[in-house]
Each structure stands twice: as structure tokens, then as C-alpha cells.
Design a protein around this nucleic acid. Structure first.
Lengths: 345, 345
DNA sequence: AGGATTATTGCACGCGTGTGCACGATTTCT
DNA sequence: AGAAATCGTGCACACGCGTGCAATAATCCT
């Protein structure tokens, strides 16, 4: 009921005990008599007193706070992961500071500075594209760091990663098994770690199937739909366009679909498309997108659980790999020529 | 270079001044001599000292921290808004605590409790569906609150809202002007404030055009694509289905599109669809979605700017309305019968 | 030159909580 | 009954920083 900024001392006065006793009662210390604790808790309840996490942090030297840095939260993959992180953080009494870096170096240093000043207990970096100077800055602050699908593997930190190579291999194999022989790879920015791994899986599947690798079937975008569309346009201008495209992620697959349709071609009749992520919208593209599911939320859970382990003093190196799962929907089918053969058979 | 947890006193010792002088130098107080301040700043730089925001907060009784509560961050509208909030928060030295409520009452009270304990300076509530007891809880903590597109208007708080009625009226008018006479409304949960407003705009446009209001053309979902699909299915089962649908938001429009296509109908040839939000994916649906643009990021900016005003002591009531903008893409066209007429003419 | 003013700096306390230690009260044991 | 052990509580200090006030040093004025 009361509205003033009560302190622990106000409660102590009301309960006619010392503030130490109130503090102990609220922390469920076995040192205080049960009935005293009960009386204190009633008063706390009645006056709506909330202990100051600020003062507590100063005294305990732990803030029960973590910093989460993302390039942008306006990305369904990132948002899914952050949801997972927040789930378990909240369950364990941690609050999360969210910071967008926008892949802007200036903002990166500001983010690190703010996390450092706020004395976060740990940090999760999600799907960062950021450069070499960034992680050392973060690691300088001597708190545990967990990287999630990071583009720059680092010795400073622990990590949660999707099984890029295996998942990509399976996705590509799916296309190959449908009969495709000209399978394109529509990648993210060249040189990014995840891109390299996914590309590797694509190559492996080609090799296993004994298909030749055709460099002209490899194009790159920047992760946004528009870039996927442009990259797809380049593929369609080829003298011999691919009959199937494996895309780095769903958003670029979205752009690819758009371009294919804009050219008057049909999916999957004329060309098959596979994405990566299984964003909530993948089920609602036209037609519904075949893609590799990343358990985004669960990956967030794992990242935060790892951080909790580290906060409890775990010394071991945590490098978790989670498997992707191929979700077959309706953007994939046998290629045109192959269907002809099947029909005539 | 140093790794220890330096305090202001360590710096003071190194600079051979008192900690007060260091404190003032770092806050750019005019009270310290320029060269002294310079020397101190060099030492601070050299040792990589970062003042503790915790201790500072305790002393100044301001945390330079705000709480942002969302039902879920895994929603492109919400994510856009949060991006905007974080933009200007960061520019003004504020850090943001992000909390997902998941529209779960238990989590709601936990969120409020954590914001309260952490002594956030202000709160932004985004697109909340939450109930009546929630806002009073928040307002109890006596910090400024800004609501963004909230479903429960409240006298406790300031707000930033989209011009729901006007925008919906224009969207519906667009359909009517194309010649549609059977225009459906695919709404969010019944009774939500935004839904009521958008429905109101729809009704107004009908009235202005002199079209009859047909209750059977009004259906409701829950904001998710799946619900949009189900609602659309109900419309298509009607003896006389609508020739156009105005959807509460893009995600349900996505579900509607899916159902229309699944029934073998074509957009916009057989039926027109309009969304609301202009999410980044709206440009990439099949066909690209006609929709009402909400300047999500800018709305986030406005919300945070309003909060800053309030934090500076503004006493006035802030209720900002921002206009929507109809973005005409390719899901809208004259109805079939009308096209026939136009052709024969 | 000497007092008045101003520019710098340091002292000491407060912000709200946690906790080691000491002390008194109560219980247990011989 | 007296000593020992246990229990419950309060005192006092620490956490790292900001700031009012006093003190000192530098500068100005007549």
C-alpha cells in the first residue's frame, strides 16, 4: 500500500528488529527464528517493500544480470534465441540487458562499455558478424561469454552451434536424391564461418553423390531477402540455370522464391528451393518452404544453461553442437526432366 | 591492461589525488583543473578502469536503466519497436532490460517484481494483451510508463499508438474503391482495443461507401498465422464468400493467403487481401502484400523519447498518435465480376 | 600590500544491503 | 545446579561512487 521508497531499515523499525534480521529473513537464512521471519515477511508484504537489487549487487558483487548482444533483434532467428535465453535467465532470477550492435563498430564498443560498467555476470553473443577486435574487448572484462552461432569462432569463449555441415549435407542430399544434378548454393557473405560450414556440407553431399561441383552455381547475399532475390536473379540468368537451390537461410530463400515467381517460373515444378532456420513463417511461404530446422529457442536455453554452469564455477570448455532437422514441405520435388521420365515410366 | 576489478580509489592513488577528484574528472565536472582531469583520464584509459554503474546508481538514485516488457520478442512488429527503443535509449546512456511476459500472469508479476527491484527509471510496455491487474502493478512503482499500441488503454500511463481507425478506414476504402462489395474483416481476439479500433475503421469505410455491414464476414483469430488460416477457411466456406479481406495484421494475412492458395484460389484474381504492419516480409509474400505500414522503429523512438521527457520531469500527458500508410502491392485488385465488366466495356 | 574573491582539492558522509563477529538468551548435558 | 552447546539477534563495517562543505591555494581588486 505504501508508496514511499522503503528501505530495509524502515521494515526493521516496523518489525522492531535490526535491519540485519530483515535481510536474513528475506534471504531465508536459517539463522532467524521461524516466527520472526514470518512476521517480517508479513510486514514486507503489507508495505510492498522490494529490496534494492542495486544495493544488493554492490554488497554481494554479483548483479544477477547478463548481457545479450545481437546485431539486430529484428530477425526471427535471433528473436527466437533471445526468447530462449530469457526463459531460463528469468527462471533463475537473472535479468537480461539487450543490446543491438547493428554490426556497427562504434556501437559495439559502446555495448561492451555499458556491459562492463553495469557489471553483468555474463554475456551471450548471438549470431554476430562482428570483427576481430570485438571478442577480445568482451573477454577483457573477465566474465563468462557464450557465443551462439557466431561467425568468428574464438578461443575466448564457449559456444552453442548448429551442426551446420551435417545439416547442410542432408539438405543438399535431399535435393540430390530427388534427382537434381544442378544444385546451386545461395550463401551468406563470403568468408563467414557459418557460411563456410554450410557450403562445406553442400560440397560434401555433391561429392558423395558423385556430382561435379560447378562454381557458377555458387552465389552470395548478405542475409536479407533482397540480397537473396538478387543472387537468385544471377542464377536464373545462367545459360544453364540450376534446377534446385539450397539457401543459407529462410530469409534469403524468401527473396529467391520471389525472384523465381517474378520470372514466371514455378516452385517446385521448375525449380526446388531449400532454406535454413525454419522460421515461423517458413510454413506460410508459397508454397510452404522445405528447410532445416534450427531449434532456436532451445539453443537459447542451452546458451543460458551453459552460462549458468560457468557462473557456478565450471572450468571446462563448453562447445555444444545441436543437430538440425530437415523439414520437408512443398518447395522441393524432382526436377522437370526427371518428372518426365517418371511419368513415361 | 590491468585485469583486476579496479575501483575509483585505485585510480586516485595512481593519480595522487583523492577519489573525489577522480569522480569529478570522470563526470567532466568544471570543478577540476583541466590538466588534472586530463592526467586522470589518461590513467583511467591506461588501466582500462570502468566506473561501476551499480555504485553510481546507489549514490545517485538513478539507474539509467529502463524496462521493456513485451508479450514476446519473436514477433517482427515488437522486435522493430524494441529496436527503435534501444536506439534512442543507447544514445542517451540508458540500458534496457528486456522481459517477455508470454501473456502469462505468473511471468507478469515476476517481470514487475524484477523491474521494481532493479529500480528501473522507466518502463515501456509494447503491444501487451495483458489484463487489468497488470498496469496498476506497474504504476505502483512510481516510475513513468509508456504504452505502445497497448490493448488496454490506461489512465496510469502515457502512450504511443498507431492511428488504427483512420488507417483501417483507408485500407478498407482502397478495397471498396476497387469495386469490392463483400469485404471481410479478419480480426484479432475479440474485445482487444486495437482490434476494436481497426474494426471501427472498417465499419466507417463501409458506411461511407453505403455498403451494408454483413456480420458473417467478420471473423477473429489470435494474431498467429495459423489462426488467420482457420479464420479464412471459415470465410471461404460461406455460401457467398467475400471478394476481399482486410486482416488485422500481416501474420494473419499470411495465414489467410495460405488458406486461399490451398483452396486453389488465386490472389488477387479471386480474392484480394490487405494486411496491417508492413513487416519486412510483406514485400516477399506471394504475391507481395498490400498492407498498412506502421513505422515500427520510429514508434519505438517516440516511445523512448517520451520516456526521456518524463524522466526530465515533464508533467504533461503524452498521447501520441502516428499515422499509418497504405502500401499498395499486389494482393489487391478489382473483384472478378468487376473485371469482367471492365473487360467487356 | 592586504583583503576579497575565485579556483581546486580533500574530508566525510550517505546511498541500501549483506555478513563476520560478538553477545545474550535458551536449551542440553553431566 | 552449573557448565557447555546452541540459537537468535544486533553491531559495525564493507561494497564503490557522488557530493556538500570546509580547507587550501591561486588570483584579483583597490
Amino acid at each position: 500500500m505504501n508508496v514511499c521508497t522503503n528501505t530495509i531499515k524502515d521494515i526493521a523499525r516496523l518489525a522492531e528488529v535490526s535491519h540485519s534480521t530483515v535481510s536474513r529473513a528475506l534471504r531465508n537464512s536459517p539463522l532467524v527464528k521461524a516466527e520472526t521471519a514470518e512476521r517480517i515477511r508479513r510486514i514486507v508484504e503489507e508495505f510492498g517493500y522490494r529490496p534494492s537489487a542495486i544495493a544488493r549487487s554492490l554488497a554481494t558483487r554479483r548483479t544477477k544480470t547478463i548481457g545479450v548482444v545481437v546485431t539486430t533483434i529484428a530477425d526471427l532467428f535471433v528473436a527466437g534465441v533471445v526468447t530462449g535465453i530469457e526463459d531460463v535467465a528469468s527462471d533463475h532470477g537473472y535479468s537480461v540487458f539487450l543490446a543491438n550492435s547493428n554490426a556497427d563498430p562504434d556501437r559495439e564498443v559502446r555495448v561492451v562499455a555499458s556491459f562492463e560498467e553495469r557489471r553483468v555476470d555474463g554475456v551471450v553473443v548471438t549470431a554476430s558478424r562482428v570483427g576481430a577486435l570485438y571478442l577480445p574487448m568482451l573477454s577483457r572484462m573477465r566474465v563468462p561469454i557464450v557465443l551462439l552461432n557466431n561467425q568468428h569462432p574464438s578461443e575466448f569463449a564457449h559456444s552453442v552451434m548448429i551442426e551446420n555441415t551435417a545439416a547442410s549435407r542432408e539438405a543438399t542430399r535431399h535435393l540430390v536424391e530427388l534427382g537434381h544434378r544442378r544444385v546451386a548454393y545461395l550463401g551468406d557473405r563470403y568468408g563467414q564461418h557459418c557460411d563456410t560450414e554450410r557450403f562445406g556440407g553442400y560440397r560434401q553431399a555433391l561429392d558423395v553423390a558423385g556430382l561435379p561441383f560447378l562454381p557458377q552455381l555458387v552465389v552470395h547475399g548478405d542475409g536479407r531477402p533482397a540480397s537473396g532475390r538478387q543472387a537468385m536473379a544471377r542464377l536464373l540468368e545462367l545459360a544453364e540455370p540450376p534446377t534446385a537451390v539450397f539457401c543459407y537461410d529462410d530469409m534469403m530463400a524468401l527473396g529467391a522464391l520471389r525472384q523465381i515467381h517474378a520470372c514466371g517460373l514455378r516452385v517446385p515444378d521448375d525449380i526446388s528451393v531449400v532454406g535454413f532456420d525454419d522460421l515461423p513463417i517458413a510454413e506460410y511461404t508459397e508454397p510452404p518452404l522445405t528447410t532445416v530446422r534450427q531449434p532456436m529457442r532451445q539453443m537459447g536455453h542451452l546458451a543460458m544453461q551453459t552460462l549458468l554452469l560457468l557462473l557456478e564455477g565450471s572450468e571446462s570448455k563448453h562447445n555444444i553442437k545441436v543437430p538440425g532437422e530437415l523439414i520437408i514441405r512443398e518447395t522441393t520435388a524432382p526436377p522437370n526432366d526427371r518428372r518426365q521420365i517418371l511419368k513415361s515410366a
